[in-house]
Simulated assay, not measured.
Amino acid sequence: MSPQEFLLLIMSVLASVGGQFFLKVGALKLGRVHAGNAVSHILSIITTHELVIGLTCYALGAVAYILLLTRVNLSVAGPSVSLVYVFSVLLGYFIFRETISLIRLVGLSLIVSGVILVVWQK
């Protein structure tokens, strides 16, 4: 993977992680959804700034991913964006004070190892 391709990958991953962050913040602002407030929650999505920012981040991440796909095989790009999972767990831990169990830590290390093996070139 060239430096330009790696930059597109990182841009896609970081934009997606940013999207998840803002969607979580927006979801916390909305509160829990249940049968009685589901319609109002759905309508509130377009008026909650954090949710709009989160969706915009996802769109930017998708654009970066599409640009990456013009340069890299899907068999490399697809698994590589799974780094979003790793950064999302770290974001949950550091920002939202979520716990990371040992089994989740093992899973994250397997993801990172898998990505390294997929992008590794001789």
Rank of each mutant, 00 (worst) to 15 (best):
Y85F: 15
N73A: 15
R97F: 10
V84L: 02
V86Q: 07
G78E: 10
L67M: 14
Y85S: 08
R71C: 03
Y85C: 02
T70E: 15
L90T: 08
V81M: 12
R71N: 09
G92R: 06
T99G: 14
F87H: 01
V81R: 00
V81I: 15
V86D: 05
G92A: 08
R71E: 11
L69Q: 07
V76R: 10
G78T: 11
T99Q: 14
S88H: 03
V76A: 07
T99H: 13
F94L: 13
A77Q: 03
S82F: 07
R97M: 09
N73K: 14
L74W: 02
S75T: 14
L69A: 08
L74F: 15
Y93K: 12
L68S: 05
V72H: 05
N73G: 06
T70Y: 14
L90I: 14
L69N: 08
Y85P: 00
V81S: 06
V81G: 03
V72Y: 03
I66E: 00
L83G: 11
V76K: 08
L90Y: 11
S80M: 02
F96K: 09
R97N: 13
V81A: 00
L74G: 03
T70F: 14
L69F: 09
V76Q: 12
R97G: 01
L83A: 12
F87R: 04
L90Q: 08
F94S: 10
V81H: 02
F96R: 11
L74H: 00
Y85W: 12
I95Q: 08
E98N: 13
V84Q: 04
R71T: 08
I95W: 13
F96D: 11
S80Q: 04
S80P: 07
I66M: 12
I66P: 01
S82D: 02
S82N: 15
V86G: 06
V76Y: 10
L67Q: 14
P79Q: 06
L74A: 11
V84E: 02
V76H: 09
F96Q: 09
L90V: 13
V72N: 00
A77L: 04
L69G: 04
I66Y: 13
I95C: 10
G78D: 12
S82W: 01
R71V: 03
L68C: 07
I66N: 06
L68V: 07
L90H: 05
S88N: 15
L68K: 05
V72D: 00
S88P: 02
L69T: 09
N73C: 02
V86M: 08
F94T: 13
S80K: 02
E98I: 06
L90P: 04
S88L: 14
S82A: 12
S75V: 07
P79H: 04
L83D: 03
T99W: 09
A77F: 01
V86S: 05
V86E: 05
S80C: 07
P79Y: 03
L90W: 12
G92N: 05
P79G: 05
L83W: 07
S88C: 13
V86R: 06
S88T: 15
G92W: 05
R71I: 01
F87W: 11
G78L: 14
L68W: 02
P79I: 07
V86A: 08
L69I: 09
F87A: 09
F87S: 05
S82G: 03
F96I: 10
F94D: 04
T99V: 13
F94V: 14
F87L: 15
G78N: 12
F87I: 04
